[in-house]
Design a protein around this nucleic acid. Structure first.
Lengths: 209, 209, 209, 209
DNA sequence: TATGAATGAGTGTTCATTCAT
DNA sequence: TATGAATGAACACTCATTCAT
């Protein structure tokens, strides 16, 4: 929930807020945050420049809000989806699959997240890291469940696994959405990644120790 | 080899060029590319603002050159190192290990690469993607060798593996260099990652097919 | 009487007009005209921003109206007061005294007049100079009466006297209302100023000529 | 002496600094501080907009520096002049006379000081009040000397006198420089004011008490 | 080569004003 | 009348880049 900024009370307020954020995703994806102009976003959203400042504190806040709201949305969707699945391995697979498919359906958002998240994570102190941490915890929990149930016997520390998986997912998704002639489609990528991670995390009896 | 720009003639020229790039790494790591000022780099390098333009076409070119030269250096170091190792699996392990240790020893460079590479990859059309591709190919080759020798029997496509590994490495390294109180040291991280990847790529007899 | 603007029709209209002006005095005193926002005045007055434009043409007009009405009020009060006094010297003293006391009782108004009047006098072509001239004429008349009755024998031209007196009063009042730990109170200041001016304007037999 | 802002070291630096300040006086006099644009000043000074920021921290600093330097100059000139005069009354007269003539010769500066000083005094915390206080002290000292030597026997407190005199001078000067068809010239005004003040401050034996 | 003063295009942000409700 | 969301013109300030020395 955004604070500080008196949200306009009109009926269409949320709609306009969303329109601006949607425009921002498109513009940021196209030019990158730093090369995007507020006036471009305003134009794309069909509002005046000044209107953006009725809904967001400043340009940074547009990006932060974008991260916050879109990550929340994505996380919620993933959580809800996982709720319907019991078997840990299936949950893990479903997570990977749905993350990849979600990003494939929201290519511009995927671009923005991949390209700008690190910048933001480093230079914007507040919201982004929190939301991002929440996302990483989702991964942690999945891994812990898999371990608890004996699916994963890996000795790799969870803190390393969760980040590695995020890094791999993120990079892969970026490649997927940017490549104009992709060799693999989202489904293939999702399956391959799931396969890769699962193999890496299962402790195979034959591989001894 | 850079073009357009008058090649440095004096012996001290290369030294000044390097000093500027070294300063740039430090400044970019601290503030990010877009928030870094040419004047800050000049000051850090102990030269006048204008002098930077004797060695680099413009601000973008400083970052591009940085990527180009530092990636080249890193790649060459890794290549040379791998040359001394025969067994594919050992080469793979050595690669992971050395990448992580190298970045740990060059924390500022690691930050810049992690935080700025994607932006640059996307928005700077020229050198960066080429150099980055070269790096990825290094990974590809390692994987191909492992496959050729039967170490990896994975069915995951190499194009997906190489990017996943880069993504995981990159994210992990970023975490490593940024966390003020890291839970794991570089050695642990390297070992864990190698373990994770190798397990994921070996085709385990027991895991059937 | 203001023109152009629809005359307030409802009984409550005048009241709202006054509330806005009262709010404006407070806000202008606190931040200065140029640093005051219409929205601040609206908030202070408890009305919507747009409402101000139902009562005033624009921001300038708020200040102009403020000067016009408050100066009129002050002048009328002073005139009325002077009407009850016959002796020119007493009228002069009463004028000084009451101007100072009035401003002391209306500190915020005094600040606005002192700080903004000159700007307005110079850059706002219409009402302000007229009203201000009227105020100065009040002084002129007092002086003329004193001269006519032989109280003042000064050879200093009236045009110079009236402005000097206004300047001195204005500066003194500003000092009085702004100083958080004033050395003199309003009464003392009034008496001192009256003394100073009267001495300066009486032609003292002993001082020759 | 200005600090913080690295003054350009070039030979012509002081000259450019002065040119900008001179331009600022002209522009501020014409439009008032708040309605003056940096670009107007730059144009008038024959420099680029950005150049102004090499010599001044920001727009406020231009005004502050203007006050500081011009007041210093004026005060120094007045001090030097007074040094050559012994008799307190003559010193007082000389002060009035020279202040008025100086302002008459620097009409635009006079306008800026009269119109903007109060704003600045109130809203700019640092330099202006200090310099202004120094100016007031000059007046105080003159009065004290006159009292010490028995020229003034007034009972009006010095703190009130100095501000009244400044207020009267300032207002009178403003009138003088603004009136397109002035009834009095600078000499007359100076003489009249001196006369007025002196009469007001001398304690006339015949006026008893 | 090296300097750093000068440039001026470019933009985030503010806020007086409007107008649909 | 009253509202306050929306507008968009306006502007201070920054900083990459140039160029005279």
């Amino acid at each position: 929930m955004k604070a500080e900024k008196a949200a306009p009370r009109r009926a269409g307020a949320q709609e306009k807020h969303d329109r601006i954020l949607k425009a921002a995703v498109k513009i940021f994806a196209r030019h990158g945050f730093h090369n995007s102009k507020i006036s471009q976003i305003a134009k794309e959203a069909g509002v005046a420049d000044g209107t953006i400042y009725l809904y967001f504190k400043n340009k940074d806040d547009v990006l932060i809000s974008l991260f916050e709201e879109k990550l929340t949305e994505a996380i919620d969707r993933l959580k809800e989806l996982l709720d319907g699945i019991d078997a840990p391995e299936q949950r893990f697979r479903a997570f990977i699959r749905n993350y990849v498919l979600y990003m494939d359906e929201n290519k511009e958002l995927a671009e923005v997240i991949s390209v700008e998240l690190r910048q933001s994570n480093k230079f914007m102190k507040e919201y982004v890291p929190i939301k991002f941490g929440e996302f990483l915890n989702l991964v942690s929990n999945l891994i812990r469940d898999c371990k608890d149930q004996g699916v994963f016997r890996t000795s790799v520390p969870p803190g390393i696994i969760k980040r590695s998986i995020f890094g791999a997912l993120d990079e892969m998704v970026l490649y997927m959405v940017l490549d104009p002639h992709p060799k693999y489609d989202a489904e293939e990528i999702a399956d391959a990644l799931a396969e890769f991670f699962l193999e890496g995390l299962k402790k195979h009896p034959s591989s001894g120790q």
